[in-house]
């Protein structure tokens, strides 16, 4: 059955960069039964926006991100990036995974230069692009190092530089700071905000951390679990630039509270749902 895409009204400003249209993604269980992980989700992201997908683990937020990245094919619906329907991964969408996933046999510089090299740039040009990005993430001194000699936070900075090396319009981030310790995470969040302010990249950022979502995003899309649906599109009207100080303000706390309540409701519903079944 093919449902008609539900038109989502455009909000003021910006061209639509990512258009998720009525996407359902289902996985096959052992018995052959289809279980939806994401159920008829629609949303739009405008150029230059920073969007966080927030939800409890298992709500399908990573699956949704993978559909935008092109790693996952929707069972129904489609993802449109720019003017094209997504059919697979591509250099127009940089991805930062939860694990750095750096090529262990390549130096930091060669990892970052990989994308431009694949795009047909000369060794020198690709190297120059890499050097610039490595400097932006503050790792010039480790450019020649192999990934395993770096700390987790440093590796993730390399992964961000690598994902930006093709100058993608869109940066997709799948809980990129989830595996880091709290101090490093804060530093990385502030660093990402500075980087985003310098570039005109659209960011779709998946997290289960409420504070992180509210600190980073222009809009937080709150998801419910089992199957994944968007239950609230929350505009974050905190002024920029934001730093860790922002989290101490009353407005931040109010927004945080709102997200917390939403997620608590959803968890409660999911809990009662399991009792009914």
């Amino acid at each position: 059955m093919i449902r008609k895409p539900v038109p989502v009204p455009l909000r003021e400003g910006g061209e639509v960069e990512i258009d998720v249209r009525d996407v359902t993604i289902a996985f096959e269980r052992d018995g052959g039964e289809l279980v939806p992980a994401v159920d008829r989700v629609s949303f739009q992201v405008r150029r230059g926006e920073f969007i966080c997908l927030l939800g409890p683990s298992g709500c399908g937020k990573s699956t949704l991100l993978n559909a935008v990245a092109g790693f996952e094919t929707p069972y129904e619906g489609e993802v449109v990036v720019g003017t094209k329907v997504v059919t697979g991964p591509g250099p127009d969408r940089g991805v930062v995974f939860q694990q750095p996933r750096l090529f262990p046999w390549k130096s930091v510089r060669a990892n970052v230069a990989h994308g431009p090299r694949m795009a047909g740039k000369s060794r020198a040009d690709a190297g120059a692009i890499a050097d610039e990005l490595i400097e932006m993430v503050g790792l010039s001194r480790s450019a020649k190092a192999l990934p395993h000699t770096l700390s987790g936070g440093m590796q993730q900075r390399v992964a961000i530089a690598r994902a930006l090396a093709n100058r993608p319009n869109i940066l997709l981030m799948d809980e990129p700071f989830g595996a880091l310790d709290a101090q490093t995470r804060t530093v990385m969040q502030e660093g990402l905000l500075r980087l985003w302010a310098q570039l005109d990249t659209t960011i779709l950022f998946v997290t289960h951390d409420i504070d992180e979502a509210v600190l980073l995003a222009d809009r937080v899309l709150v998801m419910s679990a089992g199957p994944g649906r968007i239950v609230r599109d929350l505009a974050v009207d905190l002024p920029r630039p934001r730093t860790i100080e922002t989290t101490l303000g009353a407005r931040f706390q109010a927004l945080r509270r709102e997200c917390l309540d939403l997620i608590r409701q959803q968890s409660q519903k999911a809990f009662e749902g399991t009792h009914d079944a």
Binding site: G70, P89, G90, V95, R101, F103, G115, M118, R162, A163
Partner: peptide
């Protein structure tokens, strides 16, 4: 082979044959 690395290579635009 680490499928994560394959995905990383794909999103960086590595063609299938490479």
């Amino acid at each position: 082979v680490d499928q994560g690395l394959v995905r990383a290579a794909q999103m960086l635009g590595t063609p299938r044959r490479r």
